[in-house]
Design a protein around this nucleic acid. Structure first.
Lengths: 184, 184
DNA sequence: ACTAAACCGTGAAGCGGTAGACGGGTCAAG
DNA sequence: CTTGACCCGTCTACCGCTTCACGGTTTAGT
């Protein structure tokens, strides 16, 4: 049996948050001491773990309540909905980013190199001693192990869809060619 | 002279928003009709354009007030601060994204091999001929050129916040001159 | 037994920005 | 002069907590 502040510390939450969860009926302690103190059981602890996890995923208290009340019913759809919403939020923030960048550039002419682009990336790998051949091997490995992540990565470097596909195709053929055994 | 709802429609804002701006002293109509209606002049219109722009960049009403009161004074720093904050928000949302993806994966039973983790990444680089020392150099380069992207990248490999910070700190010191120590 | 610190409970107010309800004013047509 | 549509200003509620205030309880030390 834990008291409220112990539990809070254990989960890295504040006491107020737990009070709020109680008030909202999301996590009501399964017992009270004689003095009226909230006492949380092991089962409460598990429930809180789930709650904290869902909150980290950005679900609202309302949504979490629904999921915990009937998990089999709509958990999946709630999560999917949230996933879509997160995507939109990221898109919106990226728009803010470029707007801010434009505003700053107007002001000071220069832009900061906060994000990664193709040239920077290649320069980094070269600085670490990678040559053309090594990079080719690397792309092939990436494509073989995680084609989708490979694609996403190329796009994240600002490479266009078309070019990304080309690179991936080349990577695949490199791998196919290496299959026969072609040690360095 | 525009009335409040006309102005709202013109800027794609809601009437409530303009009411709120007035209440906060951010955009007070320069006149009132006999019946007490808010009347906005052309100059108010310009001011609103600026406000809307800053809001689109995610600045708070408070920050916008400061900028409009003394543009020459701290506009730049406010924008930079916001830019950094946006970066962090994006990072946080990406973390939510992967958490959600993991949750959905657990539900649907299958683990897709589509995403990249630390071990896979390291294995790929090794396959391409990178050794410990090269990786160290690479981290240092990444940290130097784009610290924020470096951080986001580490998190995308499923590395925890704490560990990511440790790696970044090591990368910085490696850059600063000290060498040796342990690799990935 | 007493005190001080650290805990606990409840209740209420606050944050930013938006949305809605409410009652009343304005302006057309009839 | 009335009806109805629409606009206005003001006030309140919402999210997910956080902070504050006030008073009771527990714990440790003397």
């Amino acid at each position: 049996m834990y008291r409220i502040s112990q539990l809070a510390k254990r989960f890295g939450l504040s006491r107020s948050t737990l009070l709020y969860y109680d008030q909202e009926g999301l996590l009501c302690p399964s017992a009270r001491s004689e003095a009226g103190y909230r006492l949380y059981s092991e089962r409460d602890l598990d429930r809180l773990a789930a709650i904290a996890s869902f909150r980290k995923a950005g679900l609202s208290v309302e949504e979490i309540r629904a999921i915990l009340a009937a998990p089999e019913k709509g958990e999946q759809s709630v999560l999917k909905r949230r996933l879509a919403a997160v995507g939109e939020e990221i898109t919106a923030l990226k728009a803010q980013q470029s707007l801010l960048a434009r505003m700053l550039r107007v002001q000071s002419g220069e832009a900061l190199p906060e994000s990664m682009d193709k040239a920077t990336w290649v320069a980094m790998l070269r600085a670490a001693g990678m040559d053309d051949r090594a990079m080719e091997t690397w792309h092939a490995e990436f494509e073989r192990r995680a084609p989708q992540a490979h694609h996403a990565f190329l796009l994240s470097l600002g490479i266009a869809e078309q070019e990304a596909l080309t690179i991936r195709r080349l990577s695949q053929s490199a791998w196919a060619g290496a299959e026969g055994g072609d040690p360095d």
